Simulated scan of single mutants.
Amino acid sequence: MTVAVDPYAERPAAASLRFLYGLNPLAKLAAPVPAIVALIFVRDAATPAAFVLLAYALLLVGANFTRRLAGILFLALPIAVLAIGAGFSLWTDAARVDDTAIVWQIGSWTMYAGALETGFSTALRIAAIVSLTLIAGLSMTGPDLVRASVQQLRVPYRIGYTALAAFRFVPRFGHELDVIRQAHRVRGAHGGRGPFSAIARWFGYIVPLLAGAIRHAERVALAMDARAFGAYPDRTERHLVPWRARDTVFVVLFWIASAAIFVLLRPFA
């Protein structure tokens, strides 16, 4: 049995210690942006490693510790760092690092310490950027981001809520696809096994899926017209996402911590 997950449902209550859920989505986006931009230009390994530790600390303290979070932080990212670091080490031009120590040598092929340093510093830089984006990505929802953009950034609600309606199509498509698959199984139209049968099944899903999408789009359009969407310059907000003092404090403290890391480690010196 497949359980449909609605990403637009209200987030379950979290402990007061998990402070990230109580912050404005724009604050969680604005706080790491300067560090992310600066990390693009650093070349050492210590600076991105420090930002990885900072992001890990914020996520482990401020977000609910779930299996998904544990898998990302302690499995997916470390494996990605090892794979990307090894790949970039192999691709590094040996002529540029042949003045560094030799780590190992197989026949005429030599791995230099400089190549490993270049590869893993690049991998750590990517991991730091991903870790910083996870602060917002794992602790906010799409609707809250849209509402905050409309309320604080003054994004026209015609754009914001149109995008929100478009995002709503994604779980709707998943539900429609599940219903179509179940209907095919009930009718015995599974089409056999093998790659060609799978391709044939997917072609059989396309027409009913498009028909369901068109019907859903018509219902959404009629519902928006019935509510006079776009008739007035402003709309009354049912869910408010205010910018509070704690949002300002979080952004300022994060910027101070980021500046302190760059000052102490001096990656641009």
Rank of each mutant, 00 (worst) to 15 (best):
A198I: 13
P171Q: 07
T248P: 08
G137D: 07
V150H: 09
F41P: 00
T110Y: 10
I214V: 14
Y161D: 02
N64Q: 09
F74K: 01
A4R: 04
A123Q: 12
A148K: 00
R43Y: 05
M111L: 15
H184P: 00
Y161S: 00
A136V: 03
A35P: 13
R96H: 13
A55R: 03
I214H: 10
H175C: 00
G107I: 11
P34K: 09
T100K: 06
L60R: 02
T118N: 14
Y21R: 08
R96K: 14
A166P: 04
A211S: 12
A127P: 08
A70G: 04
R125I: 11
I126Q: 08
V3W: 00
L20T: 03
A213P: 07
Q182P: 04
I214T: 04
G71L: 09
R96S: 15
R201S: 10
F268R: 06
Q105L: 04
P156S: 13
A228I: 02
I135N: 06
P32L: 10
Q151I: 05
A269P: 14
L17D: 05
G22E: 02
Y56V: 04
A165T: 01
K28F: 07
V170E: 07
L60F: 13
L53A: 15
Y112K: 01
V5L: 14
F74L: 10
T110P: 09
L124V: 12
V220W: 03
I214E: 04
T92N: 09
P156K: 11
V263F: 13
V97Q: 03
A163T: 06
I106G: 06
W243Q: 02
T141K: 00
I206P: 05
R244Q: 13
I40Y: 12
T162L: 11
A223M: 02
I40K: 00
T162R: 00
I36V: 15
A31V: 01
M224F: 08
A231I: 02
P267L: 00
A50C: 14
A49Q: 02
R235N: 08
R219F: 13
V263M: 07
F196I: 08
A55V: 06
F262M: 05
H190P: 00
F169E: 03
R219S: 14
D178T: 07
A4W: 01
L153Q: 14
G230W: 02
L134E: 11
L138V: 08
S149H: 09
L209Q: 07
F74N: 02
R193Q: 12
T133G: 15
A70Q: 04
T110E: 06
A257Q: 03
I159Y: 12
A226W: 05
A211D: 09
L90I: 15
L77Y: 03
A221L: 05
I106T: 10
T2D: 08
F167Q: 05
A165S: 11
V170R: 07
P242C: 10
D225H: 06
L134R: 09
S108D: 11
K28V: 05
L23C: 04
V150I: 15
T118Y: 14
L53M: 13
A198Q: 14
E117K: 09
A259T: 09
R238N: 09
A113P: 01
R68C: 01
G114I: 06
R246Y: 00
R219K: 11
